[in-house]
Design a protein around this nucleic acid. Structure first.
Lengths: 348, 348
DNA sequence: ATGAAAGCGCTAACAG
DNA sequence: CTGTTAGCGCTTTCAT
């Protein structure tokens, strides 16, 4: 074979020589900038394609002091929720020159800081990152940066530049209201133990606050470490019900463990939603195929991604007061009774 | 507030002036290169931290002609399988200076080409991309590139530089052998219709070939468009069994639709695995929490990611002949009878 | 152990 | 419409 292989990368100069046009004009053609005659344009394009020239964005970025990257920093990819956020982001960035670059922190603040440092060293045109809680170092970097910074998912707390998300406090309160309205009173909560799962913590806080206002205390809670899975949901559900046999409702911190609990409880013959109600959180589409639909809250993941991307792309102004608050949507499913259908009003 | 906010990004020069040391020495300290006295080292580090200096990798990359990025091009993030591959890649890259950058093609060859073009314009130190089938343009770019290119997931076909994966032909054959050994004969297949799902296609080819060698023909097949979900699995299973009531086994092209089929068939009261056997593909951990474990093939996703990353990082030599072939692992689960326990040997 | 000079490949800003 | 001149912020190379 005599194809050109593994050579020195081509430069603008190569295209310039091949087409007999100045580097500057070649550059203009390749970026569709300024007026270039159709003739030279053609020559350049042909030469570039023939040679297989790929522009060097490193050099371009340095020269133009502009890098069309958006740093996106999220806790995990194994989570089912972040791919949705990402798809919202890329959908909205697709018709702009901006490109998302993903960094994963594994829920570690220290790792978040290093990931952020690495990403900022590429001088991106914007930053989107999950959550409102960051290390001092991370905050300092984000405050010093000269580009839009959008914190996503959560709006309960202090914002660096601006935030797009739902109020998890409100989501918790909302679910509590629905559960109470359906007449359930002996309620348990199952969630992660992760110290860094601030959003789950806020949901629980809102949930308990709303229960308390109705004179109801959480009857049991069960925490776990590590990732969420159907298996974990089964195990935890069995455990909490073994401890507190008379629970009437279980509120899970995410749909995956909720789905596991649902499968388990059905196998055990629990009357759902009659004697035992269940609810998760997120609104993942995995729920579509379960034997019955788990009640949940749509966390507006895709919308959050879209709106955040729109702000970074300048399609939408930075929200007033820095917070763009989306409403969590309650999805009743089939694991919670209809409102007012409860056994007793208030306890006994 | 008088904190420094939204200013011009700091440069090496700023650190140089703040510490009274030449830019060159500052650069050495920040990269731990060459000998620098402990004293100046200290001065520089302090100055850099105080100022909040973040190095500019754009400039660094241009000067050093070396960019420590690895382009990773995959079809989708919503797929459950790619996060595993990615986690293998980042685990193996974590102790190197290399950083993965993810590009998503949505199973479109055209999009793959543009994503690749965009990524190559950053002059990465390596490329990892899914599959062996690429557009002419994409192949040309990859052949011209001067860095390692690792095609992953599949090894059945022509390799550009090298490949790490399983043989899907073999995976299909293996599953056919297991199903036949268990005595099932009336077998159906359910898979995506996507023209670009080459790996599923190869599995089916291997599957049918092995069946044919045993004198068995596929009794039915059902294809679908779009993404995989539990709901889709239910629907397709219902449809194929409505058409061919006497099917004894269903081979799904992935675990997600297999799991949906499993849930549906159990609800319908099918005797599994006695009268109806089921198998999926991938070995996702979602399967852990189902009522019974779906038989499947572990596609070695994380291993594939790790080995590919090792090759790109130079921890491992490029494989002989360009192909690093991993063995798919059959996982029997509980939805296939034990070998030899079949109803009849051969067809009556 | 430290510094000075040159230049990576491209584009902004000006000519013409 | 096209070309020339600088220089982006860093690192390589060579001195000292």
């Amino acid at each position: 074979m005599s194809q050109p292989k593994k050579r020195r990368p081509l430069t603008l100069r190569d295209v310039s020589e091949a087409s007999g046009v100045s580097e500057m004009t070649v550059s203009r053609v390749l970026r569709n900038r300024g007026d270039v005659s159709a003739a030279t344009r053609e020559k350049v394009l042909t030469a570039a394609k023939t040679l297989g020239y790929v522009p060097n964005k490193i050099a371009g970025g340095l020269a133009s002091q502009q890098v069309n990257l958006v740093a996106v920093v999220i806790p995990s990819l194994a989570n089912l929720v972040f791919p949705d956020v990402l798809s919202g982001i890329s959908a909205e960035l697709d018709d702009t020159p901006l490109q998302p670059v993903i960094g994963v922190t594994n829920y570690s603040p220290a790792r978040e800081e290093t990931v952020l440092y690495d990403m900022l060293s590429w001088r991106p045109s914007g930053v989107i990152l999950a959550g409102l809680e960051h290390s001092r170092g991370a905050r300092a970097m984000l405050e010093a940066v000269a580009v839009p910074v959008v914190e996503i998912m959560d709006v309960d707390g202090d914002v660096i530049d601006c935030a797009v998300g739902i109020s998890h406090l409100q989501a918790g309160r909302q679910m509590a209201a629905e559960i109470l309205a359906a007449g359930y009173r002996r309620i348990g909560f199952i969630g992660t133990h992760m110290p860094e799962d601030h959003r789950a913590k806020k949901r629980l806080a809102g949930f308990e606050a709303a229960l308390a206002e109705a004179g109801v205390a959480l009857a049991a809670r069960e925490f776990y470490q590590g990732g969420s899975s159907l298996a974990k949901g089964r195990e935890l559900t069995e455990r909490i019900l073994a401890r507190e046999r008379d629970l009437e409702f279980l509120y899970y911190s995410n749909d995956m463990i909720g789905a596991g609990g649902l499968l388990w409880a059905r196998e055990q013959g629990y009357d759902i939603p009659g004697k035992l109600g269940l609810a998760g959180f997120n609104g993942v589409d995995l729920l579509d195929g379960l034997p019955i639909r788990l009640a949940t809250t749509d966390a507006r993941r895709q919308d959050i991604g879209r709106r955040a991307a729109r702000i970074v792309a300048g399609k939408e102004p930075r929200p007033e007061g820095g917070k763009l608050i989306l409403a969590p949507h309650f999805l009743p499913g089939e694991t919670i009774r209809a409102p007012g259908s409860g056994i007793g009003v208030r306890q006994e």
